[in-house]
């Protein structure tokens, strides 16, 4: 029996990578910006759900590797 709560069954890191790629390749600023915010909210959600594993900052804060899924994970 799977006892993992539904909110922990999501692979938020994978979702973030997808959102970041979609944002990066969006056709309009409106969509690109919205997807970037959605990406940040997945980080926030992960900090609530899995505080011992969640990154502390959005990857795009990291100039060296802006496409990272989150820095200092």
């Amino acid at each position: 029996m799977n006892r993992t709560p539904p909110s922990k069954q999501l692979d938020l890191a994978a979702v973030r990578v997808t959102l970041l790629k979609l944002s990066d390749t969006a056709d309009t600023p409106a969509v690109g910006r919205l997807l970037l915010q959605a990406y940040e909210l997945t980080l926030v959600a992960e900090q609530y759900i899995d505080p011992l594993q969640a990154p502390i900052a959005p990857g795009w804060y990291d100039v060296a590797d802006p496409m990272a899924g989150g820095v200092l994970a």
Binding site: P51, L52, L72
Partner: peptide, 17 residues
């Protein structure tokens, strides 16, 4: 104990950041 563990991890990361 878990709060302490989470905080210490975050503090170390924040100091590095």
């Amino acid at each position: 104990p878990q709060l302490d563990a989470v905080h210490l991890r975050r503090i170390k990361q924040l100091i590095e950041f």
